[in-house]
Design a protein around this nucleic acid. Structure first.
Lengths: 229, 229
DNA sequence: TAGATTGTTAATCGATTAACAATC
DNA sequence: TAGATTGTTAATCGATTAACAATC
């Protein structure tokens, strides 16, 4: 075995970059590119070549010294590592605009995940069809998860319901929570949780702008102060 | 001045947590809570109390020893730091399902950002109304950005167009890029960039599931092997 | 006052960078 | 062969944790 001891857990920082490699390699395949290098990959994602080689090294060398990496083989291998092709199943809880948007998105297909159903408890929503899925009553969740392979639950519901629903789903055997509600789901042993808050990154941008503006304002004030004295 | 040297840049790790504090404090206000502590905040977001105190310490002590933090005052202060209230302006480029969803979302209101317009270059889209915004032709972007305060551009367009559009917008004076396209935008001096790929976190969940499954499979194999020998 | 909790310093841990021998 | 580029080790950097004096 060429790779490092396989039991060794891969750091989250590395896992977080695997989908990025995967996506960029996809772009390269689309444009007909056959080979790449750590430095090219790095340039594409605004990182150093070192981190790329280190990351890929975690899974055992699939590069060739003096040559680089075969785009197609590398992408396939990363896809395997990411579990694309395992055909995990997911349900969306909450059929509002967010749930409907997620259902219509390519996110599931991109990750090789099958969307198996959409649930809501609002009678107004139940029975509606969203992207070919008839919205089911959340009451049916227990039996549905029992009868279908559902490893992942997507929470597109109000923050106040998130914790309870999440706990219930975990009891039913769900092992992954993709949470878009406003309330973060706390870490739970044996459950993969990702709390997604798109607005957060917009606020981060605002922070950077304000920080910049503050510096400019301060400089202007100082300049004026100096002139005045 | 009680706070640390104000020129000192705040680490990205800290910035990334500010919106989370902000959101959790919002939840606390909703439920009528008046005071909180570093350990309560930490429990709510699955972190240690130490990191909370350290983070808040960056901006100067607004806690009280032996008491904790006033929920409302703390939230207001973090809001200020985040630039909520600066009323930055944004445009969405791309009026597809993603652009339409973003326009209908609370993300802008949550961050105190004004959505000033939606643009597309598809004649089919131009003129349609999305959430009260008439979709404009991207040709009009230059003059629009010139005439309105637009600090932030939201890219909801195909990856192949992202880099060119982004560069153009930066030339027009845009200082923040919230990029939802498949192609990451490279770091640019003086521009705040956030590349958002919701599918990535779904893939991370799949990775964790596959990793877990692999371990189980290996254990089963070993057990069978031992029995067989 | 006694109990609670901050703000801050020092110690630990993990991630990134730099460097280079191995080799295609 | 010479040039290129990997895989990997050691050095640096940054972030998290632990601990505790200060004090409300």
């Amino acid at each position: 075995m060429n790779r490092k001891e396989i039991d060794e857990r891969v750091p989250d920082a590395v896992i977080g970059r695997l989908p990025i490699y995967y996506r960029i390699l996809g772009n390269m395949i689309e444009s007909g590119q056959l080979r790449t290098s750590s430095s090219e990959l790095a340039a594409n994602m605004g990182m150093t070549a070192s981190v790329v080689r280190q990351d890929l090294g975690y899974f055992g060398g699939f590069g060739q010294k003096g040559y680089g990496y075969g785009v197609k083989a590398l992408r396939e291998r990363i896809g395997e590592i990411l579990g694309i092709g395992e055909a995990y199943g997911a349900v969306i809880i909450g059929a509002g605009t967010l749930g409907a948007f997620l259902a219509s998105s390519d996110f599931f297909a991109d990750g090789g995940v099958f969307l198996r159903g959409i649930f809501d408890h609002d009678p107004e929503m139940i029975g509606k069809t969203i992207c070919g899925h008839v919205v089911k009553d959340t009451c049916e969740l227990s039996s549905f998860v029992g009868e279908n392979r559902v490893e992942i639950a997507v929470l597109a519901l109000p923050g106040k319901d998130a914790a309870a629903v999440s706990e219930w789903l975990v009891c039913l055997g769900v092992r992954g929570i993709w949470n878009f509600s406003s309330a973060p789901i706390a870490a739970t042993e044996g459950v993969a949780i990702r709390n997604i808050h798109p607005a957060d990154s917009l606020m981060e941008i605002c922070f950077k702008l304000r920080e910049e503006d503050d510096i400019l304002r301060r400089q202007r004030r100082e300049r004026t102060g100096n002139e005045g004295s």
